[in-house]
Nucleic acid binder design. Sequence first.
DNA 1: CCCTTCATTGAAAATCATTTTCAATAGTGG
DNA 2: CCACTATTGAAAATGATTTTCAATGAAGGG
Lengths: 149, 149
Amino acid sequence: MRLERICQKMSEKDYRLTPQRQVILKIFLDNMDRHLSAEEVYQLVKKEHPKIGLATVYRTLDLLAELDVLQKMNFGDGRSRYELSSDEDTHHHHHLICLRCQRVLEFEDDLLEELEDSIEARSGFKIVNHQVKFYGYCRDCQEAQTPRF
Amino acid sequence: MRLERICQKMSEKDYRLTPQRQVILKIFLDNMDRHLSAEEVYQLVKKEHPKIGLATVYRTLDLLAELDVLQKMNFGDGRSRYELSSDEDTHHHHHLICLRCQRVLEFEDDLLEELEDSIEARSGFKIVNHQVKFYGYCRDCQEAQTPRF
DNA sequence: CCCTTCATTGAAAATCATTTTCAATAGTGG
DNA sequence: CCACTATTGAAAATGATTTTCAATGAAGGG
C-alpha cells in the first residue's frame, strides 16, 4: 500500500501521523518481504527513535491493523506478526511455512478466489477475508540430510 | 480419529494412557463439533476429575497435538484452540469465522487439494499440512440489522 | 511381592506477549 | 497564547502458557 493512501486513511479517522508512527511505517515499507513481530519492530524502531516505548509499538500496530494497513497474522510461534496489506484486492499471496527451518515463504496465487466463490455459494457465508497457511518443507530442507529435530 | 488408533500412537512412543488423559480425550470425542481452548477443556474435565491441574491439561494438549491426534489452531482470540484431527487424509474442512458473532463454522471441502498440487508444482515446496481460515459474516449476521460493534 | 526406575501429576511460581494505567507531552483549532 | 484531546513512555497489570519441584504411581526385574 502506498504511503499516500495510508495517510489518507489515518486522517479520515482523525489519527495523527506522529514521528513514532512514521518510523514504524517506514520499517514496514523498508521490509516488505518480512513478517515482523512487535518485538522485532521495536528493536528496529529504536535505532532511529531510541526513546520509543514498546507500548507505543503495540498501539501503533493495533491501529494500523485496524485501518487495514497492516495484516496481523499468526504463524504459531506465540507472537503476532505483521505485514503491509497488499493494495486493495489485487496481489494475493499465501504463506508457506517450513517445518524444519521455520522460514516463511510467500507464494503468489489467485486460485483461492474460485474456492471462496464456491464456499459462498454453498454455505451462505459472506467471506471478506482469508488467511491461508501451508506447512511443509522448503526446497532447501527437502534436500538437507540432517534432520534438525 | 478412532480411540484405537490414538492408543496405538501413544504406546508407540511409550506414553501412558492415564486417567487424566483418558478424560481429556473423551472430552474431544464427545465434542467433535467444537474448538475447545485449554481453559474450556479444563472446566469440562473438572466435572469428572475435579482434582486435575490446569498444567496437566496443557501438557496433555501439547502431547496430543504432538501426536497429531489434535490440531492446534488459532482463531485470533488470544488463546489456542484444539480439535480432533480428521482421520488420515480424508475429510477436509475449513473454518468460517464470523466477524460479528465470533462463531466458528465448519465447511467441508476438497478443492484445496488442487491448489496444493499447483503450489507444489510451481514452488518446489513440499506441503504436508495447511490451515485455512475464512473471515466474514454468517447467514444470521448478514441479516441482522443491529451492528454489534 | 518388594524395590527401583521413570513417566506423570498437582500446585505454585515463573515466563512471555500483550494491554492497561496514568501522568506528562505535544498538536490543533480557536 | 489557551484549551482540548490525542498520543506517548514507563511501570504495573493481565492472561495464557510453561516450568519447577516434590509427591504419586505404574511397570518390570529380582
